[in-house]
Amino acid sequence: MTPTVTPLSAAPPVADWRDFVALTKPRVLTLVVFTGLCGLLAAPVSVHPVIGFTAILCIAMAAGAAGALNQWYESDIDALMKRTRARPLPAGRMARESALHFGVGLGGFSVVLMGLATNWVAAAILLVSILFYVMVYTVWLKRRTPQNIVIGGAAGAFPPMIGWAAATGDVTLLPVLLFALIFLWTPPHFWALALFVQTDYGNAGVPMLPVVAGERVTRHQIGLYTVPMAVAAIAPWPLALTGWIYGSVAVATTAIFAAMAAVVTFRTSDEGMKPEKQLFKYSILYLFILFGALVADRWVLA
């Protein structure tokens, strides 16, 4: 039998190493790494810098793996959106198998390294976070329900809990509240984004809330989710889990968040979308400030 040889011109693309970096969604990683680091630093035990570095590296690798697997699964809808069509897979710079192997390999490696370097509680939560983002959010919810980012938001809420677990080996009320904070922060954050990029999501057939339920409902939902988010953000202070530094910063920054969310909630004009863009940008800054205050509180008042 004559062996068949694939012509070189039909061979899968050979991706550049930078394409693998792009596959990990580096911009998303910054917030994941920061919140994970804050969870680690806010824990009431000291961690050796090498172990702490390894834990954060594992969180970053796991998030990168989840991002790669997300892009592997979603390359078809990424190709339809302006914001995502230049990614390595829809742009044709990488074979889909490469992205799959990279994601699975990186994810598995991060979990094993976390378990060996810190503890298996942190490794188990890390594994759950990857599976949650890929299986629950990407595969199950994203294309099926406008509540996709509400439940999917849990995937992004894991890092501070993992950082805490890596330091202490367990999970207490404070990391659970930090989890709740990011979980409840995700809907107003993403729906503010979805309000001004809704055409793009609509073109790709992703059932984001503004696409299927309209702007009015989305604005109300942003307001509704801001209330429990504010409770989760401030609760650690009255519960005596943090001191006045975190408490005062949380009250001030959450009040600003609530005011901006109220403007978006009760707005009837859709010209310019400036308040929505401002809320989206501030929501990112808000988490950075809040988690920074948590660490400052722990270190100054310890």
Partner: peptide
């Protein structure tokens, strides 16, 4: 050029991993 770039990055990452495992072992 892409294959060469990937090989160099992989070599650097493997070297960094060896150092990291060594440091973790000492700790």
């Amino acid at each position: 050029a892409r294959q060469g770039g990937r090989a160099k990055v992989m070599a650097l990452l493997l070297g960094a991993f060896v150092l990291l495992v060594f440091a973790i072992s000492i700790v």
